[in-house]
Write a protein that binds this DNA or RNA. Structure first.
Lengths: 155, 155
DNA sequence: ATACTTGCAAATGATTTGCCAGTGT
DNA sequence: ACACTGGCAAATCATTTGCAAGTAT
């Protein structure tokens, strides 16, 4: 499967940082690339390529989906972007650092809970103990039933 | 997302059991359905719909992909079948009980490790502690780096 | 000037759907 | 008999690729 890893990218906290990063890697800074960055910086949760191409539904000028995919792939290669699969829909993309986050999805109510990696360190330790794996929950989420759904069913 | 849950199906250990189950639910037992069951019972790991339609590559008579998908969906509704996403490829299907299994995937070497749920009970406990969720790793696997890959990188 | 990028169209892969003929019960 | 199913073609969705025209450096 090969999931993008953190990568050597220095922390990019703004579009300008990202732009500098692109130049530093010898990549060109085109309008299409800026638009993808704008969308990602504007979003507070992972976005589909389609939504980025749609300009977040009009907030931002729209661009071509093919280019969006190509640029997202390029950015993933730089370690600037990551993608998650939170369910059966399309892949969702986010800035790698915004998205240091990890996810839990409730199979009953479909709610998505993002959390800081530290919150799942105990889980990581348990996985390591059980299997020797060093786990990450930022590509595939932890699926289960959330506390409220369980309570609702009297568990 | 809504992941198929265990379901009310009684334990089906053979094709005949499954056939009885279908009849008990008022569903017809057609040749196409038998073929899907044959493939699933013959497999030792989850299969793609395409592979089932191909008759496991010639071992079994082939059938129509559309029917395979329809029947897999029907069987999932009965709790007879489940599907997993082990990476970026197509969904993989397996008998629900064969597939009481849960999965770990290494992001470096792409190896897949299936294990009995009990092996991950510690992990489940840790997830519960951290989030209140009751987790399952049979729909999305735990992604991470396996012990050998970590060792190879001197971690 | 020139190589990197884009936009658009067409291709691919996975999965779904419409529809009518076929068949299990 | 009759409703449930299957097969096949066409449709849909997500993503990728080919290629000529456009543009960042």
């Amino acid at each position: 499967m090969t999931v993008a890893r953190g990568g050597p990218t220095t922390h990019v906290a703004s579009i300008d940082d990202a732009v500098h990063e692109l130049r530093a890697r010898g990549l060109r800074v085109s309008a299409a690339r800026r638009l993808v960055l704008e969308a990602l910086f504007a979003a507070d949760s992972p976005l589909s390529a389609k939504r980025i191409a749609d300009g977040l539904g009009g907030t931002i000028p729209r661009s071509d989906v093919a280019s969006v995919y190509r640029n997202l792939e390029t950015f993933e290669g730089l370690g600037l972007v990551r993608h998650v699969h939170l369910g059966h829909g399309p892949s969702l993309y986010a800035l790698a650092q915004t998205h240091g986050r990890e996810y839990l999805v409730c199979e009953s109510c479909d709610s998505v809970q993002a959390c800081e990696p530290a919150q799942l360190d105990g889980v990581r330790a348990a996985v390591h103990l059980a299997s020797g794996y060093e786990a990450r929950f930022d590509h595939f989420p932890i699926v289960g039933r959330c506390a409220s759904c369980r309570a609702a069913d009297g568990e």
